[in-house]
């Protein structure tokens, strides 16, 4: 099967998952019914749009980071952007009223701060090792500060709303939320797609890549800006959703090949399909409430990933 045919199948999956996301829920809606129904437009559509965008950028940034760090275990969390954006959001929930605009702005501020710190820490030696070290430092610092903020919360209700938000969800998002988050995600995705060539060259190692004309400083700037915008906006609007960026490139590598540039577009499509389906399943959970998307991804992702590791453990490339 050609690459174009495989991409077409993935795209069809995304379309089907998007449709599922519109109709699925405690209340199933017919697609051919009154399309202007309030539930469809006000509740399901923004949710489906955000799921599509979030899944796409999580998959794409996972593929880019795995290529850049040449590590199949890398995912957007290692950069520290998501935990920094979460720190900003938690601060806004606790101390700025917690309106969706304030949370979004604070989370983007946190992501921007993380990007600036990453750039400052790795400016002098643009190499993936420096990058992952800086990201790890940033990630644990932001995690610690978030825990500190939570411990200063005025009352248990505030803590509950923070924890609820941190679990990541697409519930009750409005078209305004989608309109705020999707533009930075789209710009960031465009920036990430610019890395394709350089990621391929890095397959041969840093020296060989540089000898092929790759400017590591430029590449690193693209990775920082691209993940900052995509993951920052993603966390800002949905909270922290893990595993997508880690699992999707893995799933697709046997289908689309190992070359990093061949995985970028498929990972975006695969991530979108996965998040849309997972979010639809979240709504169908028994009981009055919903399973949080971040929790569902971890619940699906961890055993799935374990199975993948068991399957591939005898091969050189997992």
């Amino acid at each position: 099967m050609t690459r174009a045919a495989k991409l077409a199948i993935l795209a069809a999956l995304v379309v089907a998952a998007f449709a599922l996301s519109l109709v699925a829920g405690k209340q199933w809606l017919p697609l051919d019914g009154d399309a202007a129904s309030a539930i469809m437009i006000e509740l399901r559509l923004p949710r489906a749009l955000l799921g599509l965008a979030l899944g796409a950028v999580l998959g794409l940034s996972g593929a880019v980071l795995q290529g850049y760090l040449r590590n199949p275990l890398a995912d957007p969390a290692v950069v520290g952007v998501s935990s920094s954006a979460a720190l900003g959001a938690v601060a806004a929930i606790l101390y700025a009223g917690g309106s969706s605009l304030a949370v979004f702005a604070a989370a983007m501020l946190g992501a921007g701060g993380a990007m600036a710190l990453l750039a400052a820490l790795t400016w002098r030696s643009p190499s993936p090792v420096a990058f992952i070290l800086a990201g790890t430092v940033l990630s644990s610092l932001a995690g610690a500060l978030t825990a500190f903020l939570i411990s200063t919360a005025a009352n248990p209700y505030a803590i509950a709303s923070v924890l609820d938000w941190l679990m990541g969800a697409l519930t009750d998002r409005s078209l305004d939320d989608a309109a705020r988050a999707i533009p930075p995600m789209a710009v960031g995705a465009g920036v990430l797609l610019l890395t394709a060539r350089a990621l391929d060259a890095l397959t041969l190692g840093e020296d060989a890549a540089r000898s092929l004309g790759v400017r590591l400083g430029r590449l690193q700037a693209l990775v920082v800006i691209g993940t900052g915008l995509t993951i920052g906006a993603g966390v800002a609007v949905t909270g922290v959703v893990g595993f997508v960026g880690l699992v999707v490139p893995h799933l697709l590598r046997p289908v689309f090949g190992h070359r990093p540039s061949d995985l970028l577009l498929p990972s975006a499509l695969g991530g979108a399909a996965l998040v849309l389906v997972a979010d639809s399943l979240c709504r169908l959970a028994p009981g009055a409430g919903e399973v949080r998307l971040g929790v569902a991804m971890a619940l699906i992702g961890a055993p799935f990933f374990l199975g993948l590791l068991m399957t591939y453990r005898n091969r050189a490339w997992i």
Partner: peptide
């Protein structure tokens, strides 16, 4: 102008041999 074959023969992803050779054409 200058091609470089490093001592380190590591190839970090399991790409096809032809795709590895094609990297030489990137510049």
């Amino acid at each position: 102008a200058i091609g470089y074959l490093p001592q380190d023969a590591a190839v970090h992803w399991n790409i096809r041999a032809r795709d590895a050779v094609a990297l030489g054409r990137l510049p």
